[in-house]
Design a protein around this nucleic acid. Structure first.
Length: 155
DNA sequence: GCCAACGTTGGC
DNA sequence: GCCAACGTTGGC
């Protein structure tokens, strides 16, 4: 099993929206590096849910991959924000995953705390200027995050 | 609101 | 294939 971190703006789709939906499709990723990480996710992988572009930013909860290699439907929505004219149903360019809500942290694990605890080499998230929205997390870093955040889940 | 860090686009 | 211009992300 692998660990990941995904970023979302809470004003658009936050951990509470995730809780309400229970299972959500992670659509709208239009960056090839992020997509390639999405494509390599496996069912059962645990994913830290990060709130970006908010004050303060930080890890807000935990979700789990329940379905992989899902064709992102938003690439076919002509009037939608994520329409990709180069995609066809036969040759979709964008695959993603479905994730299930596991838990929301009572207290945000803030980015400035993460900066204190991790080197950029350990956790790409704390590297200045890091814009990647899907990030792999090493096992030992995941364990430390579980502890730091006081997650109920751990593995 | 600023701006650093990148990713993408498009002319050549 | 290069690279300048442009657009976006996202912390501060």
């Amino acid at each position: 099993m692998a660990y990941w971190l995904i970023k979302s703006e809470p004003d658009v789709y936050g951990i509470e929206a995730m809780r309400q939906e229970n299972i959500g499709i992670w659509d709208g990723v239009r960056n090839y590096q992020a997509r390639n990480f999405l494509k390599s996710m496996k069912s059962g992988d645990l994913v830290f849910f990060y709130h970006s572009n908010t004050k303060p930013p930080g890890i807000a909860g935990l979700v789990q991959v329940v379905e992989t290699m899902v064709v992102d439907p938003s690439q076919f929505e002509v009037d939608g924000e994520y329409y990709d004219p180069k995609s066809t149903p036969e040759y979709p360019r964008w695959h993603t995953v479905k994730v299930q809500f596991l838990e929301a942290l009572p207290e945000l694990l803030e980015l400035n705390t993460l900066r204190e605890q991790f080197e950029p080499e350990e956790l790409l998230l704390v590297k200045r200027g890091s814009r990647l929205s899907v990030i792999p997390i090493a096992d030992n870093v995941a364990q430390r995050l579980f502890k730091l955040g006081g997650f109920k889940h751990s593995a």
